[in-house]
Design a protein around this nucleic acid. Structure first.
Lengths: 251, 251
DNA sequence: CTATGTTATCGAACGTCGTTCGAGAATCGA
DNA sequence: TCGATTCTCGAACGACGTTCGATAACATAG
């Protein structure tokens, strides 16, 4: 370690991922990890118990090894989260592979956005760490590019295209982050249903002065039994309608 | 403290905020705080050095007191951040007070959204903690209501109105969170300008294969000298154009 | 002025977290 | 067989959020 490049961390030379605990024959001495196992377990931990559950100690316990071992694969927690994000995004890329050839580019754009939304909304931790470099992680850049290619087909100016993709991507992240934010009891404990949870808020809204909060009283019934996916799709359609309008009437 | 209600924390009975260090005459013995001072210094700390700078110890040092004193005003760090968020939102409410009487409701909605965006984008910490109950904190609810009242004037159905306001609010938060995310050097050290920062990313984009990343190569010039506010306004106009279309052509 | 109860401050400690360090086990190439 | 590399891990460090109990400052009643 004198002057060479930085340590080639985590590049398991043997190729295949090794996630086993120890040798088959001898008594188990040391655990054996792999970058894939580390990231995979990190994602599982985040999915199961949320962001604060991902600690190096919990992850090490899950891997059956020591805490410091993880630092051979990732430099710090930021990189761990970056790689976890990228790992999930890879799944979105696979899911949206076919959404590129419709006659209507906006249909493709919508399909990609809906798929991305579905992935984020069931992973509240992802929203917060997604925007910490939308297009720095390789798969994030690929997703950005894939959405952009649909917009290119609309024949807008480069500036309009740039704004359009940023708008759609920001919208997806913003709504998903907002919606994937609810329950301390419901999902984790399962004692309170989602309807009860919404009903409790709706009751608070109804208790407010109708003269001071006319809008809340108009929409409280909609709020009480709204569906997250419907809400997202309705907003996305507004945005895409504006985009289609721009494509039809160039300034 | 036998059976009464919970302790009435932080309600400084004397009314006026006391932020002084100690008595005027005698040697200083103890610091004297107030809820306003605690929240104000917390916001200042967040604004100056970002989210990780807000620690109870740093805040206590800034207030010239002990760490445990802060716990008399807030129950935990979550409440501290909730109150800090609400404190900033109060400023937005003041700024948008006049944006309610235009002939075109969409103009009002746009003005409120732009004002909120401006506030969030210069406070990256706010985006992450804003969505942790968009409408639970009192001022957040008021802002939601104010935007909703403009939408009401469009004469949409309750469901459409509900979706429209959620879409605009989510869009603002999503874009602001995405954009307020950049520099470890620029703002903090001041060594690298924003243009240099963008140019570095642009160079990376240009180094990619044009056949695999056609969209990135089309928009890289726009990206290299884009303005955050312009980008936001362009996306918002797309969304509002879609909303206007819906108001004109009811389904 | 003294006594008493409430309001508010704070030093010290606890447990957990991310991170570092160095020893040493496992593996590979020659 | 042996040296170099790759990888694991126990132990420690400092910083963090939070709690507890002692006690100072203040308001009021007698």
């Amino acid at each position: 370690m004198t002057a060479g490049a930085t340590q080639a961390r985590g590049t398991a030379r043997a190729g295949a991922a090794r996630a086993g605990a120890a040798r088959a024959g001898g008594g188990r001495r040391r655990a054996s990890h792999s970058l894939e196992a580390v990231i995979g377990e990190a994602v599982a931990l985040l999915d199961e118990a949320g962001e604060p559950a991902l600690t190096f100690r919990a992850l090490a316990a899950r891997l059956g090894g020591g805490v410091a071992s993880i630092y051979w694969y990732v430099a710090n927690k930021d990189e761990l989260l970056d790689r976890a994000t990228d790992h999930v995004l890879a799944g979105v890329l696979v899911d949206t592979e076919g959404f590129t050839g419709s006659p209507d580019p906006i249909d493709d754009l919508r399909a990609i956005a809906v798929s991305l939304f579905g992935t984020i909304v069931e992973r509240p931790w992802l929203a917060a760490y997604f925007m910490r470099d939308t297009a720095t992680q390789p798969n994030g850049l690929l997703l950005y590019e894939r959405m952009g290619q649909q917009v290119l087909r609309l024949g807008l100016t480069p500036r309009q295209s740039f704004h359009a993709v940023s708008a759609v991507l920001g919208f997806v992240i913003g709504i998903a982050a907002d919606l994937g934010q609810q329950p301390p009891q419901e999902v984790l404990d399962g004692k309170v249903t989602r309807d009860d949870f919404l009903a409790r808020y709706a009751a608070e809204w109804r208790a407010l002065d109708p003269a001071a909060y006319p809008f809340l009283h108009v929409v409280v019934d909609e709020f009480a039994d709204h569906d997250d996916a419907d809400q997202f799709r309705a907003g996305l359609d507004l945005l895409l309608a504006g985009l289609r309008l721009q494509a039809q009437n160039p300034d």
